[in-house]
């Protein structure tokens, strides 16, 4: 498939935004139970939500570039019963709205206590918003992942790994970002966040490696034989019917050499997981906090590469029909 920059940005940015928001909620929940020092809404949660918001809105904005007719984007909520894309289109704004509201609530210190846990811990509005947000964030991971995972013939995508990895990678990049962010806003939380970031990065690493291994073992279900319905071991296309290219030769091919694809396959695990994990581990082991923003930047770049590869690697069966210029 052709990796379209708008989609690469969309999925990586909102993933990081979701992860970051989840990190904020995690901090809040830990704090609620007194496991972490409580943070000031205005100093920590509001700016954190703002960053998440920026990521989410930028991602959303990028997605418009993917549309031929962005002015009609509103129509895309119509088919939520059947279309994961439609669902994403509903959940993403909902999530953005929630992040906004929760950020504002934190900023305004608006926190009417809505309930009390049996242990007497008060649950205020921001906590409730955070929990709803968590549900939405996971729902969004599910939608985004399922957009790809639900296409059965894109076999590289059609696996639970897609949703799991989107979630893990979003979480990892969000937590790394949160760790970096905390260096300035809440240094006391940094080790905690960095540790989680490390764990998630390693999990994401594992998940992504597993999907690479899986995909490397995939045998195409569709072949030229099934594509044109002729049973013969040797079938070669000599003409796809036109020479100058078409939508079908642009949209479904990455347009780069095999060598390039191979090098990205080596590069992205290093950039998205190995280096950030090493930097995070180094920090956890006591190295300087300056490593964390570096880790966040490297990881994000690595995830862009990962997403590029995610698309490029996916071999659409339609390509069987578009193999020869002649």
């Amino acid at each position: 498939m052709r990796p379209d920059l708008s989609v690469l940005l969309l999925t990586t940015l909102i993933g990081a935004g979701q992860g970051l928001y989840l990190a904020l909620v995690t901090v809040q929940v830990y704090a609620l139970f007194g496991l972490l020092p409580a943070q000031d809404g205005r100093a920590f949660f509001a700016p954190g939500s703002a960053i998440a918001l920026v990521l989410l809105v930028t991602g959303l904005a990028a997605s418009f570039f993917h549309l031929g007719r962005p002015e009609r984007a509103w129509r895309s909520a119509a088919k939520w019963r059947t279309s994961w894309l439609s669902r994403e289109v509903i959940v993403l704004p909902a999530f953005i709205g929630l992040v906004f509201v929760s950020g504002v609530a934190h900023f305004l210190h608006y926190g009417p206590v809505l309930a009390e846990l049996p242990s007497g811990i008060p649950v205020d509005a921001t906590v409730v918003l955070g929990l709803v947000g968590t549900v939405l964030a996971f729902a969004l991971f599910l939608c985004t992942g399922m957009i790809y995972a639900s296409l059965p013939f894109l076999r590289e995508w059609a696996s639970p790994f897609t949703v799991v990895n989107f979630t893990l990678m979003g979480g990892a990049s969000g937590f790394t970002l949160a760790a970096a962010f905390s260096v300035w806003t809440a240094p006391s939380l940094t080790p905690f966040l960095a540790a989680w970031a490390l764990i998630l990065t390693l999990l994401a690493f594992a998940g992504r490696l597993a999907s690479l291994v899986r995909n490397a073992k995939l045998r195409p279900k569709s072949t030229l034989q099934t594509a044109i319905g002729i049973k013969h071991p040797r079938i070669v296309q000599t003409s796809q019917g036109f020479l100058g290219g078409s939508f079908n030769t642009r949209e479904f091919f990455h347009g780069r050499s095999r060598g390039f694809l191979r090098s990205i396959r080596w590069l992205f695990p290093v950039a998205a997981f190995a280096i950030p994990a090493a930097l995070l581990a180094a920090f956890v082991a006591g190295a300087g906090a300056v490593l964390l923003p570096v880790a966040a930047v490297v990881q994000y770049a690595g995830l862009l590469a990962e997403r590029w590869f995610f698309f490029a690697e996916a071999n659409h069966p339609q390509n069987l029909y578009y193999q020869a210029i002649g």
Binding site: M1, G68, R69, P70, S83, L154, F247, H316, Y322
Partner: peptide
């Protein structure tokens, strides 16, 4: 109605949908 998101073309295994590059549908 079409927003030109191309998702349907991804969902077609046969490579028969074409985005009209001018109308973007």
């Amino acid at each position: 109605k079409c927003i030109g998101c191309k998702y349907c073309s991804w969902a077609c295994p046969y490579g028969v949908r074409e985005l009209d590059e001018e109308r973007k549908v």
